[in-house]
Every structure is written in C-alpha cells, then in structure tokens.
C-alpha cells in the first residue's frame, strides 16, 4: 500500500512540475503581457496544487500537512488578485498587442468614461523580448 501511495505522490509532483514547466514555456512564447499573465498565473496554480497534494500524501503523518492546506488555500485566493492587478496595469499602459486582439470591448467603454488608456502608446514591438 505504501508503494501505491509513493507512486501516487510521485505522479502528482511530476504532473505539477510539468505544468509549471509549460507555464514557463508559455511565458516565453506568448506575444504580450496580457497573454503572458495567463501562463504566469494559471497552469502554475494547478501545478502547485498537484505538488502540494503529492507532498501532502508523503507527509500525511506530519504536522506540516496543515501548512500545505493553507498554502493551497491562499494560492487559490491570491493568484486571481495579482493576475488582475498586473493585467489592469498592462492594459492601461498599452502593453497590449492590439493587432492580436480579435475584439476589444473595453476601449470604447473606457473612452466613454473619459479614461484614455496609457500615455505610452507605441507601435507593437516585433520579435521576442524578455
């Protein structure tokens, strides 16, 4: 039975690592800040949950398990907040490749409200940038 749980824990940790790696790949490959926020905040959320679950199985007799529960809970609560704030900043400072947007329903509403998004309007940068 321990072998089974060890295997399950290993599988979960490896899945979590894979998802985090894919998030890193997305961070490099996606074209602008908004798209990168998806990679930076999401697959890594599920990845962290997998790693935490795997660690929880391995440590199930230790008092640290409860700490892991807290890590997972606070990650779920805080990741959307940071994602939203960075996205809002990115949009308002025009770090958005509008040529890659098939629709932008925020711009007209913002302009109607008298908010001109960002001073730094500039042509999209070509090529990959760090």
């Amino acid at each position: 039975m321990t072998t089974f749980f060890d295997a399950l824990a290993g599988l979960l940790v490896l899945t979590g690592c894979l998802l985090t790696l894919l998030a890193g790949v997305g961070l490099v490959r996606f074209p602008d800040v908004l798209s990168r926020m998806h990679a930076a905040t999401k697959p890594q959320t599920l990845g962290l949950l997998c790693v935490v679950a795997g660690a929880g199985i391995r440590l199930h007799r230790s008092v640290d398990v409860w700490m892991l529960v807290l890590v997972a809970a606070f990650q779920l609560v805080t990741a959307p907040v940071s994602g939203h704030l960075v996205a809002r900043m990115a949009y308002r400072t025009r770090h958005v490749r509008s040529d890659l947007l098939v629709a932008d329903e925020l711009r007209p509403d913002l302009e109607a409200a008298g908010i001109e998004p960002g001073p730094g309007r500039r042509p999209p940068r070509r090529g990959r940038q760090g």
């Binding site: 926020m37 998806h38 905040t41 999401k42 697959p43 779920l76 994602g83 939203h84």
Partner: peptide, 9 residues
C-alpha cells in the same frame, strides 16, 4: 480569474 484562459482586466 482562477481558470486559465481568462484574466479580469
């Protein structure tokens, strides 16, 4: 926001 593919702007 929690779900990948959507970020609240």
């Amino acid at each position: 926001s929690l779900v990948p593919g959507s970020v609240i702007v």
